[in-house]
C-alpha cells in the first residue's frame, strides 16, 4: 500500500491517483524509454540503478526479463556478471549518470560510440537512465514498486 493516505492500491500508477495528469505523462515517458531499448538492456539498466540507489528490492520490477541468477549477479556487481563489452560500456554510462552526472562529458559519449552505439542509441540510453532515476525515486518515496 502506498504511503500516501487516501490512495487505494499499492501500484506505481495508483500512487499517482491524486494527480492523473502526472501519471499520464509518466506512463508516456516510460513507454518511450522501453521502445528505445531492448528488454535485456532495459532490465540490466534497471537492476544497476536499483542497486546504486540502495533499492535492491526493485529488482522485482524486471523479474522475467533476465534469468534470475544473472539478475542477482548484476545487482550485486555488474562488473562481475559476465556482460558483453558493449553492455559493460553502457553500464559505465549508467553508473556515471546515476551517481556522478555532473562529471559526464563528451568523452563518455565517445566511449559509447567506440563500443558500437549510434547517436540514437545514446539518446535512448540517456533518456532511460534519467527516467529510471526519476521513477525509482518516486517509488522509493511513496512506498510502491516502479513499473
Amino acid at each position: 500500500m502506498s504511503w500516501l493516505k487516501g490512495v487505494s492500491g499499492d501500484g506505481y500508477a495508483d500512487a499517482f491517483s491524486l494527480s492523473p495528469g502526472a501519471e499520464e505523462a509518466d506512463a508516456a515517458m516510460r513507454e518511450q524509454v522501453r521502445l528505445g531499448l531492448g528488454e535485456r538492456d532495459y532490465a540490466l539498466m534497471s537492476l544497476v540503478i536499483a542497486g546504486l540507489l540502495g533499492c535492491p528490492r526493485f529488482m522485482d520490477s524486471v523479474r522475467g526479463l533476465l534469468p534470475a541468477v544473472e539478475a542477482v549477479k548484476v545487482i550485486e556487481d555488474w562488473r562481475e556478471a559476465g556482460l558483453s563489452s558493449k553492455e559493460q560500456a553502457a553500464m559505465v554510462y549508467v553508473e556515471k549518470g546515476t551517481l556522478r552526472p555532473h562529471e559526464a562529458g563528451p568523452s563518455d559519449v565517445e566511449v559509447l560510440r567506440a563500443a558500437g552505439f549510434n547517436d540514437t542509441d545514446i539518446l535512448s540510453l540517456a533518456t532511460a537512465i534519467a527516467y529510471q532515476n526519476h521513477a525509482m525515486r518516486v517509488a522509493a518515496a511513496l512506498g510502491v514498486e516502479p513499473l
Binding site: 549518470g97 540517456a126 533518456t127
Partner: peptide, 12 residues
C-alpha cells in the same frame, strides 16, 4: 528534476 538534470548532464 533528477530526470531533467541527468538528460542535460549526460548529453551536454
Amino acid at each position: 528534476r533528477n530526470f531533467v538534470s541527468r538528460i542535460a548532464e549526460l548529453l551536454g
